[in-house]
């Protein structure tokens, strides 16, 4: 199908609603004000996808889950290590907690996984309410590694059909830490190519 400017606007709105709900959940959890940026929706090739969020070698904390149901695809919540540390330190009340440490505590990992679960749940339930579509997230996985290595798992399904990916990218940041790439967290929603029609149909756009 041909993606028009109207389609892109709809995808932006999806990113907007989803990330706004997730940012509110995050704010409630960590007791800090969380701001978000206007979503970007881009059609990019795989190489360019790897260069988002600070580049393919940039070490990040990544949560990944598949979505199933009326819409299928991959979802990522990516945080810079420093920012993830601050959130988890607050959640578990342990100022020593550090993802770059080789002996990361189980409780911190578990808190991060749960954080990912809650935020992606808020994002996707907002999306489901907005579209009326059934959306089921899988249990999220957690990895602390190079961004390129993490994001490529979301490209596997898509790469069987296309050399490009449409990515709905919303970034969030904690107030007081400035808005620059080093501190931004990202939600990436990568719908599988077959799912765009369901999304647009559900919103009455052909």
């Amino acid at each position: 199908m041909k993606i028009t400017a109207l389609h892109l606007d709809i995808l932006k709105e999806i990113g907007n609603i989803g990330a706004a709900h997730a940012a509110t959940s995050l704010s409630n959890l960590v007791g800090r004000k969380i701001d978000m940026r206007v979503p970007n929706v881009d059609m990019v090739n795989f190489t360019d996808m790897m260069e988002l969020a600070g580049g393919s070698e940039n070490v990040v904390v990544g949560i990944y889950l598949r979505i199933e149901g009326d819409v299928e695809g991959s979802m990522f919540f990516i945080l810079p290590v420093e920012q993830a540390n601050r959130f988890i330190q607050r959640l578990i009340q342990d100022e020593q907690f550090d993802f770059s440490n080789n002996l990361v505590s189980e409780i911190g990992l578990s808190a991060m996984q749960e954080l990912g679960n809650i935020l992606s749940g808020s994002y996707l339930s907002a999306l489901s309410d907005f579209t009326g579509l059934k959306i089921y997230p899988t249990v999220p996985g957690l990895a602390v590694d190079m961004f390129g290595a993490i994001i490529s798992i979301g490209l596997i399904e898509i790469s069987q059909i296309s050399d490009h990916v449409i990515v709905i990218n919303t970034s969030i940041f904690e107030e007081g830490y400035g808005d620059c790439e080093e501190v931004r967290g990202h939600f990436f929603l990568l719908p599988d190519p077959e799912s765009f029609e369901s999304l647009f149909n559900a919103l009455g756009v052909v």
């Binding site: 790897m50 580049g55 393919s56 590694d145 190079m146 961004f147 390129g148 290595a149 993490i150 490529s152």
Partner: peptide, 8 residues
């Protein structure tokens, strides 16, 4: 090549 995950 950088950031290889499941790719080879």
């Amino acid at each position: 090549t950088s950031g290889l995950g499941s790719c080879v």
